[in-house]
Computed example of a mutant assay.
Amino acid sequence: MLDSFAITRRWPAKDANVIQLYSLPTPNGVKVSAMLEETGLPYEAHLVNIMDGDQFTPEYLSLNPNNKIPAIIDPNGPDGTPLPLWETGAILIYLAEKSGKFLPTDPSKRAEVLQWLMWQMGGFGPMLGQFGFFYAYGGKDIEDKRPMERYRDEAKRLLAVLDKRLDGREVVAGDEYSIADIAIWPWVRALFTAYNAGDVLELESFPNVLRWHTSCADRPASKIAVNVPPRP
């Protein structure tokens, strides 16, 4: 069934009956590997090395025309046929519905979880990513520091929103750990690991975020997910 997907010619499936994950353990990549580990859905991971431009190859673009990681193919889709899927928010919702885990069935609580998932997709992730570029990567050499300052301030504003939300709460939305938590914590982790931005963002001033992040990152599934697939 998977042979009809051009991507499998570059990244062949070892087991064509399990979910195929094409990824790298960036914050967005970790979101999906963490979800797969949490749900226990069988999968195999293929390294898409974005430093080498794998995401621009015809094979990868045949699955995700937006040339971003991660993407998946579920060989056992809802109608019994393979389902290709990209965009992490869509993937998390799909995997939650497939597994029956990490997304409440109560309509109000479900809407609350999806609200915070969309907050991550539309604001928290993109703004922290821009901050990281201008602070830690190529943009740090730009003499005009206004872009970095703009995204630094927005990152701090969003962290304050999250910190206030987590005041007296163990999870971001609903009553239990959900795809909202899974979507957000890898981006907080990046502030320490990829960007080394603890001081400039004054992360110690967000104690609720730090407490919550530790509880998320210490989950057994999370510890595995941050190295799936292993970096080259």
Score class of each variant (00 low, 15 high):
Asn76Thr: 15
Trp116Asn: 02
Gly89Trp: 07
Leu21Gln: 03
Gly89Thr: 04
Trp116Gly: 01
Gln20Ala: 04
Leu47Val: 15
Pro84Glu: 13
Pro75Asp: 06
Asp54Thr: 13
Thr105Pro: 09
Asp52Leu: 15
Ile73Tyr: 10
Ala45Phe: 03
Ile91Met: 04
Gln55Pro: 10
Lys14Phe: 02
Gln115Ile: 00
Pro27His: 12
Asp15Thr: 09
Met35Tyr: 11
Ser99Phe: 11
Gly53Lys: 14
Phe56Tyr: 15
Met35Pro: 09
Phe56Val: 08
Tyr60Met: 11
Tyr94Phe: 06
Gln55Leu: 10
Ile69Lys: 08
Lys98Ile: 09
Leu41Arg: 03
Ser33Asp: 11
His46Leu: 10
Lys68Glu: 12
Leu83His: 08
Leu85Arg: 01
Asn67Leu: 10
Asp106Asn: 11
Val18Pro: 02
Thr81Trp: 10
Leu103Trp: 02
Lys109Arg: 15
Leu63Gln: 05
Glu38Gln: 12
Ala45Trp: 04
Glu112Trp: 00
Ile91Phe: 01
Leu63Ala: 08
Pro84Asp: 09
Pro107Leu: 09
Pro25Glu: 03
Thr81Ser: 15
Tyr94Met: 02
Trp86Gly: 06
Ala71Met: 03
Gly53Ser: 12
Gln115Phe: 01
Ile19Gln: 01
Gly89Asn: 05
Leu63Gly: 05
Thr88Met: 08
Ala90Met: 08
Leu36Val: 07
Asn49Arg: 11
Glu87Pro: 10
Ile19Trp: 01
Lys14Ala: 14
Lys31Leu: 10
Ile73Arg: 03
Ser23Pro: 05
Tyr94Trp: 05
Trp119Asn: 04
Asn49Ser: 11
Gly53Phe: 13
Pro70Ser: 09
Gln55His: 15
Asn67Glu: 13
Pro65Cys: 11
Val30Ser: 08
Leu117Phe: 02
Phe102Lys: 04
Thr39Asp: 11
Ile72Lys: 00
Trp116His: 06
Pro75Tyr: 02
Asp54Met: 12
Ala90Tyr: 09
Asp106Val: 01
Glu37Ala: 07
Pro78Arg: 14
Pro42Leu: 08
Ala45Gln: 10
Val113Leu: 00
Trp119Ile: 05
Thr81Met: 14
Ser23Leu: 00
Leu41Gly: 03
Asp15Lys: 03
Val30His: 05
Asn17Ser: 15
Trp116Pro: 06
Lys14Tyr: 07
Ala111Ser: 03
Lys68Tyr: 11
Ser33Asn: 12
Glu44Ser: 08
Leu63Asp: 06
Asn28Trp: 09
